[in-house]
């Protein structure tokens, strides 16, 4: 038994619920961020936080439940898709800024009847 193993045996390990709590807070912070920010890029940051919370859940379930390695695979897909989503959203935001000279999402109301 190596020293590190002994250390691991002595110290209470973090449980699944710890990670679930952290992930829940990240998720809720993201939701609130999406709801309250009026800057388009701020909204995008909220989306990133939400995706990150979900990712943490996937990896935690991969570690502590029978989900196995599939959780890590899914989280890698999420990371890649988040990159794609950020690229598109930024392109839209830049276009919006070019056309309206503002990035306030409340001003994007031209399609309103």
């Amino acid at each position: 038994m190596s020293t590190t193993d002994q250390v691991a045996a002595n110290v209470p390990a973090a449980e699944l619920n710890t990670y679930l709590f952290i992930a829940a807070v990240l998720f809720v912070c993201g939701i609130v961020c999406m709801a309250t920010k009026r800057n388009a890029i701020g909204v995008l940051m909220g989306v990133e936080l939400v995706l990150n919370g979900a990712n943490l859940n996937f990896v935690a379930f991969a570690r502590f439940t029978r989900l196995g390695l599939d959780g890590q695979v899914v989280s890698l897909f999420v990371i890649v898709l988040a990159a794609a989503e950020a690229a598109i959203a930024l392109a839209i935001a830049l276009n919006f800024y070019n056309n309206h000279l503002t990035i306030d999402v409340d001003r994007a109301d031209e399609l309103k009847g």
Binding site: T3, T4, Q6, V7, N10, V11
Partner: peptide, 13 residues
């Protein structure tokens, strides 16, 4: 850890 007893091996780490 050679100098320590078991309960303090965290220390060595």
């Amino acid at each position: 850890a050679g100098y320590l007893d078991n309960s303090h091996s965290a220390w060595a780490y």
